[in-house]
Design a protein around this nucleic acid. Structure first.
Lengths: 124, 124
DNA sequence: TCAGACGTTCACATCAATGTGAAGGCAAGT
DNA sequence: ACTTGCCTTCACATTGATGTGAACGTCTGA
């Protein structure tokens, strides 16, 4: 698929799809005329990228952890890939993600608690 | 406490504390000489703000939802506060927060799954 | 074949969050 | 009194994620 269709399917402007490529997050093929050609999985990849960006991760971090997300088990067969640095990177990032989750969950709960309390007060 | 101490206690540069005030996220008193004076709870407030900013919320959204987080029950007694707009705002924001949580949790799990699989492969 | 929709690159603008420095006032210790 | 450190405001710079437009090539249907 070409960039316009991917944009339509994901709701992400073409400008951004080109930007993500520049940031090494997407790697479309090129057809003879130079047009970007995306595989069908690109839709999910883009949604993945968007979700992580919206959650406060930078393109740099996304670039570094993406290779380890949703990988087929083939890659896992080569534990050589896991240098101590990569291990530390992944663990550190997972922990920071966990921090964010806890912060967000706390505040989500606070909001719902507020709404529930109001509801409750109104019913009385 | 003055801005320097708050900065030391939270690790957030004074420049940012002044910025958060400008963005209506903090409202310190002023002493006679014009110095900002923060109450003891400011430490938690700043951590709260930092956590939300790191999680991808903008200062604008934080400003709008903060009044409803960690409020003493006094305020809850006035359900008049909950106009339909505020209700929609809070629900909408809570849902978007939930989206982020799910995205982050998915990827945290993926990272840990990867690490576990490596661990597993290495033990064989 | 020509128009219109889509693609390309390049470049400059914006916005939010943050860094940094200048110029000057206030406070506390020696 | 003077130094040192903290405070104030003002202002300009930077970085990352975006918006937007120019100038130009490519495909496709009437």
């Amino acid at each position: 698929m070409k960039i316009g269709e991917l944009s339509r399917r994901t709701g992400v402007p073409t400008r951004m799809l080109r930007y993500y490529e520049e940031q090494d997050l997407l790697h479309p093929e090129r057809s003879d005329n130079g047009y970007r050609v995306y595989g069908p999985t690109a839709v999910y990849q883009v949604q993945q990228i968007r979700g992580l960006l919206d959650s406060g991760l930078t393109t740099e971090i996304i670039r570094r952890i993406m290779p380890f997300l949703d990988k087929p088990d083939d890659i896992l067969m080569h534990p050589r890939c896991l240098t101590p640095e990569v291990d530390a990177l992944l663990r550190g990032e997972a922990e920071r993600i966990q921090q964010r989750i806890e912060c967000l969950a706390r505040n989500r709960d606070a909001i719902y608690a507020y709404l529930a309390a109001i509801q409750d007060a109104g019913r009385r």
